[in-house]
Amino acid sequence: MHLAIASPTTTWYLVLASLLFAIGAVGVLVRRNPLVMFMCIELMLNAVNLTFVALARKLGDIGGQTTVFFVMVVAAAEVVVGLGIIVSILRRRPSATADDIAELKG
């Protein structure tokens, strides 16, 4: 029992990642600034990355880390495109919230 406390197990990592994911999901639901909503999506992506790395360690399979690598690349591309869309929307209407841009019409 003492040894189990001395080193965090994979379950701890997975529970931490699920907590991080839940916080990100709450952020997306609560916030109205599109930039902050985007940051919350990054939180959720990081939670999933943490899960992948923890399970790669536990299962002894490097494929989990490869998947995290691809997730990071796709997340970078996603951030670039999303911020481009947000810039083009906010340039038209400064201080637009997620409620104002419910329809994509310019």
Binding site: T9, T10, T11, L14, V15, S18, L55, A56, R57, K58, L59, G60, D61, I62, G63, Q65
Partner: peptide
Amino acid sequence: AIVRSRDSLVVRGRGIDIA
């Protein structure tokens, strides 16, 4: 779900020990 399934985490990979 994580806590319930923690006993089913068995090594299925090719045994690459990252550590």
